[in-house]
Structures are given as structure tokens and as C-alpha cells.
Amino acid sequence: MIIEAELLSKTYRVADKQPGMAGTLRHFVRRRHRDVPAVSGVSFAIAPGEMVGFLGPNGAGKTTTLKMLTGLIHPTAGTVRVVGHDPKRRQAAFLHQITLVMGQKQQLIWDLPPLDSFRVNAAVYGLTPPEARRRISELADMLELGEELTRPVRKLSLGQRMKAELLAALLHRPAVLFLDEPTLGLDVNAQARVRDFLADYNRRTGATVLLTSHYMGDITALCERVLLIHQGRLFYDGRLEGLSERLAPYRLVRLELTVPQPAAAFTGHGEVESLQGNQVCLRVPAAQLTGSVAQLLERFAVVDLEVSDPPIEQIIGGLFERGRVDDSPA
């Protein structure tokens, strides 16, 4: 296992401040603090070469966990090992093997072309200039970066900048990539290109990738396995398909009828998702699927019938919107 977390917990001490002038004054004179658990007892293990999606609503503890895995934050309790090291000691041998890319923060020098930032990084990681040149051109090919490399970063589009950030972060050939919202704010095309690159990079180098994203598209395209964290607890660890099973144990049954029917006609067969003329879509509990389908075919004149899984975006989107999970944690 290249990443191992065991009963990882982090509690933050935050200032407790009442609104308004009086509250501000009171806060200035005497600060009151509150302990807020950000991550509680999270355990998981990731094998080399895996691409794992890290899901959860805002404030669920994703970034905190990522920072504990990279050694930027010291855990309050629990243990972490990444490529055989304790991250919080931030030893050089460990830092040479990991990288962190943050969609909303950049390490490239704003006023200079990306190439200058790459050279700084190459020197820091002790690469010889010919070796650095070779790696830059290899990654630039994969990322389809050309003349952008000699244009000041401030004049690049967001998508070009993100690709350059990735190049800067991968120059030292890390074995583990921590990506925090790497496609944030990118348009659909740029998102797809970053995704393709990550998949390609993983295939070619066998690097392990742990990725957080708000875009389900990133996760479904890249990650077979997901970790769902919710209110600081690990809620689900497994295959992406299994997650829909877990959170939404139902199927969508689409029917095309010869004669339109009122919604009331489907009582007992499932919940009506949509009804338009002779098209109807029902939500049927997975356990009753075969029985329900048989009954529907028997009772109505059906032209066409289609059974599908509810889209994962919808399931997780709904979960994030509600901000709570009805099920008990795993």
C-alpha cells in the first residue's frame, strides 16, 4: 500500500466571534475558542497506481485530509504513511515522491513565462539542465503546450495556466499525485483535456492519484474507486457503481405506452419521476425491480421499456444539496 491512513483525526481550534461591534470588541479583548472536529477517525489504504476520487460536500474534511497526507497539517490523532514515510516529518526523500496541485492556488511566477518557473523547480529538485529540458518537452507534448511556455503566465488562459501548473508539479516524476480541484473554473473542453492527460499520465507512469473535485465528470472519467467523506467521517470506500447502490438503491424504469395514463395509475409500481404524454419514468426500489417490471408489462400496453441506474451526478448532487446523509456511516 502506497498510502495508508489509520483512524486519522484533526480537530481545529477556531475563534468564536459574535457578530456586530460589541462582539468584535469582546473578541479583540478576550478571544474565545471552540474545538471543531474536521476529520474524525478516517481509515483507508490505497495501492500503487490507483486513481481514487475523494468526494464530499464543502467543509466535509477533504482538503484537511489531503493536507495531512502531504504533511502540511499534523493530525490530532491517528497515523498516516505515504510512500513509506510519515508525511509530517517532510523528509526530502518523501517530498521527492509526492506532488500537490491546487486548482485555486498557483505556484507559477505570475510575471514570467512558465519555463522560468520550471527551471526554478528543476534546480530545487536537483535535475541537471539537459534532464530538465527532456522532461519539460516530454510533458509539454503530453499536455499539448507549445508557445505558451514562453508567454508570461499572466497572459495565459485559465486552462493553459492549469496545464502549466501540472507540468511544474510533475517535473520531478512524483509517485503520488494529490490533486485538489484541478479542473476548478475550467471550461468543458479544458476540463476534458486535463482529465485525458491525467488518465494518460497514470497509464504511462503508474503514478498513484488522489483527486478531489466538484465535477462528477472528473470522478466518473478517472476514478474506479471513490472515498466519500461526510462531516469528517469516511462514509463510503469502494467502487463508484457501488456508491449509487448504497446511496440510491433504486432503478429508473422508462416506459413508452400506447395510451397515455394518469400518474395515479402507477401507484404501487414505483414513484413517478416524470410523466409526459405516453412517456413515463418510474423510480423502482432495486429489490422489487423484476416483480414491478413484470406487473407493468402485464397491466399496460407497453411499446418500449428501459431500465437504468440513476445518474451518479444526481445522487451525489442531491446528497450535497441536502447536506446530510440519511444512512448511517460506514
Binding site: T70, G71, L72, H96, I98, Q107
Partner: peptide, 9 residues
Amino acid sequence: TLDFVLLKP
């Protein structure tokens, strides 16, 4: 962005 600095060897 101090994170980036702290993660450099």
C-alpha cells in the same frame, strides 16, 4: 501558497 514552498525538498 506557503504549502508549495513547504512541499519542496
